[in-house]
Design a binder for these strands. Sequence first.
DNA 1: CTATGATTCAAACGTTCGTTTCAATCGAGC
DNA 2: GCTCGATTGAAACGAACGTTTGAATCATAG
Lengths: 234, 234
Amino acid sequence: MNLRAIKPLHETQTRILDAAEELFMQHGFEGASMRMLTARAGVNLAAINYHFGSKDALVEAVFRRRLDPENAERIAELDRLEKASGGAPLAPATIIRAFVGTSLRMIQDEKKGGRNFIRLLGRTYTDPAKRIRALIGQLYAPAMARFKDAFAKALPELPREELVWRLHFMFGTLSYTLAATDTLELIAGCKPEDRYDAAVLESRLTAFLAAGLLAPVPQRTGQRATDESVKQAA
Amino acid sequence: MNLRAIKPLHETQTRILDAAEELFMQHGFEGASMRMLTARAGVNLAAINYHFGSKDALVEAVFRRRLDPENAERIAELDRLEKASGGAPLAPATIIRAFVGTSLRMIQDEKKGGRNFIRLLGRTYTDPAKRIRALIGQLYAPAMARFKDAFAKALPELPREELVWRLHFMFGTLSYTLAATDTLELIAGCKPEDRYDAAVLESRLTAFLAAGLLAPVPQRTGQRATDESVKQAA
DNA sequence: CTATGATTCAAACGTTCGTTTCAATCGAGC
DNA sequence: GCTCGATTGAAACGAACGTTTGAATCATAG
């Protein structure tokens, strides 16, 4: 009674999700219209509302399809690493590589979304729509908490507040790197064919991020004249 | 013949630019409609087309108003530092601080746009619309080239390709940090009142970025199985 | 005061948006 | 073969979009 339905249903839904992934990345969520999406997917205009309910629900489905497995994999890898170390704290670079590597592996695996989705994801972190950022945050929260604990265990001497900031910086570097396609050409001519070589990029990113994470904690000399400016902003 | 016109003309245009800065940040360029913008600015619906020509031209004006002076200031500060050093190469952290500091100073100075514009800017780096990214790139290009040369002089031993990547990472960290408002709360509870204390943030960011910039260059062991994946992506 | 050019105003333009409707089509179960 | 729920199809919905129009209003120069 349901076997019959699964095949073509899954087929249509998948085609819509694939088209949405690509067009959302190219034009944004508001810029990609229902008519563009359905035309690209080769389905009827009404199919999105029929299968997903609304355009907003489609956006959520696009992210859930990729992020739920990805973050599960991320956490599983961290579990594996900690189990293998037998209770000894992991090296920070190892934790970084576990987090970064999972994202970069998506680039190479078209089945997991490839570059399309990962660039869409990078752009969405800073999307102006609060609803969308909230969705992303919610999907990332468990993995984020898990990795934060791992870092705290690996760096017991680093002040908690400084750690939080540095995780913020690291997440920013990763998401921006995955999203940006122009800055690199802006800074200097860059061969695009090795720009997304995931293994090389993973090494570069891990080296950069690990060094930043382990940077000496700056003495807080900067607090002199800032109180008033904070107050005026309130 | 023109003095009379300057006052109210400037007044209306400024009100529109201020409203656009805020609403573009909150809703994005497509999400903020002409009717929202003019209502917030307290001007007639036709005023934007009258004074700026089109909505697209308004977007460009919003960025030009802030970025042209900002990047001029950035370059001037670098000139000043190099002149003061008397030909000796600058410390990388000094160059970073010059770049980062100019952005962060905007946060504290409402006359220069304050948080509103700087967050709008951070979000725009990854905007899906090619036209907008091209505009931002064009406005940043001179400052970018200038700072790239300064870093190359400060780090003669760092391979040029690695430097370009690390500038990419650094620019990403900065722009994401300025844009993101949610990730920090996601990672851990964070007192928002010191989140945008520019002086403290400048110290944190500079320490993080300088460490990343000076990280050991990773040996490129990652190139083993990546050739095929590069080809399949082409 | 009158004439002139700049600016504001209310109203409407045609287009496109996301969504809905309802008939047509499909495919398995009795 | 017929029935019935699931899916697709073509067409239309009202709303909102960016833009344009032409008259009204304003402030100055003569």
